[in-house]
Design a protein around this nucleic acid. Structure first.
Lengths: 73, 73
DNA sequence: CATAATTATACCTCTTAGGGTATAAACATA
DNA sequence: TATGTTTATACCCTAAGAGGTATAATTATG
């Protein structure tokens, strides 16, 4: 599966009913960064991504390419 | 667990008996980048990391913070 | 429909990641 | 010990990521 990050962020944000701006504020990143994530930009910085994922109790880690998202945790 | 990436890269590289330089060449990244990864630098670019992980059939994806590495796949 | 809220796109600036190179340190092995 | 190999640290330069802002497009909502 490709771009699990995009799907994950979008889904989680919707679940919490947050706007991109609210998410950006809570994560302490710029609004533009949230947009870049959700647009599938691949040249993002890892620390910034993790900064956002932390809100959802997640972190970026190496997983087998084939494996489907096992989280929903 | 923190920095699964560092552990993963170091372990995989050792298993294949590659030097940092060899890994850099095969992944198509600079030697400095491999070193930055293994030194735990957190401000790395996601696309570059994935470029390296691809050699091992892996990719960066969001996982629960608490979950231990389940790969070894 | 009109209006407001949310998201997307574009431009500018500043900071820094990534690559290269050189040197030093650590780690082997004889 | 000395020698060669691998890894770490430090420097410079270029390209681009991240943030801000403004504007357009999209999506609700009445």
């Amino acid at each position: 599966m490709k771009n699990q990050l995009v799907k994950f962020i979008k889904k989680r944000r919707k679940v919490l009913g947050l706007t991109q701006m609210e998410l950006a504020d809570r994560a302490g990143v710029g609004l533009r960064f949230i947009r870049d994530i959700e647009q599938g930009k691949e040249t993002l910085r890892l620390d910034k991504i993790n900064q956002v994922l932390e809100l959802f109790g997640h972190i970026m880690a190496p997983v087998p390419q084939s494996k489907e998202t096992d989280d929903e945790s």
